[in-house]
Amino acid sequence: MARRFSSISSGTARCTRCERSTPLVVDDVSVDLGGRRVLSEVSLTAEAGTLVGLIGPNGAGKTTLLRAIRNGIEVASGEITLTGQSVPGLSAREIGRRVATVPQETALSFAFSVREAVAMGRHAHIGRFEAADETDQAAVESALDRTSLTELANRPVTDLSGGERQRVLLARALAQATPVLLLDEPTASLDINHAIRTLETVRSVVDDGTAAVAAIHDLDMAARYCDRLVLLADGEIVAAGPPSAVLTSETLETAFDATAVVSQDDVTDAPRVTALPGVDEGDASDTDG
């Protein structure tokens, strides 16, 4: 089980243990928000080297699940373990060494350089009275390289385009060098070129041994890049398994309340979803919204 950055990770001593336990286990987790159940008995596992796609309509609970994993939200019942350790027992710093998140968007409105912004990913690895050492610098440079940001490294983040900013967020998460990577709709605001590049980078990081969970709206992309898909609707898992098993006309109709035809893409061989105008209520739910 090769772990990405294992050679340069500062937490090597602890990671003999990470390598033996599954990076992420979500076991029967329910979450209540404002008295309403938004996640109900959800279970999923992400092994090292797998990319799990979270799909489902808006409000299905995808983002809530990602927040629960990194302790951003209280869990009503069930348990989440990161590299074998229960999340509520971990400090913010310990969680920051285990899970990195690529948010949908974040405030990057300060004139930090790209390199400085990416280096913030090392926060959990650097002690309060320490400065960044070679390990930290190597992780930052490697993350810049993987996201093709090396040439922009000295530019202020405020000068970048939307696609470039998204890459900065990805690079920041890669610099964090964690066994688990969470992505919340990393391609939502990107053009097709940037979306593919982002997912290719994520795929290569996963192939190097990271366990990743990504909420993805684009079903075709999800089918193409993920090893497994988890289809959520109304806080419950409708279907889970390989893309071809999850993306069927029946499951999509249950989850999205939309009629869709699933075929096979000639080029990528991945399942392809074509949404059709709804027959009832004329409510043509798009798969991308």
């Binding site: 710093r93 974040t106 405030a107």
Partner: peptide, 16 residues
Amino acid sequence: NVLLLGEEAAAGLGVA
């Protein structure tokens, strides 16, 4: 510095 990114992002980066 990390708090400038917003509290949600700061928490994700390991700030209590």
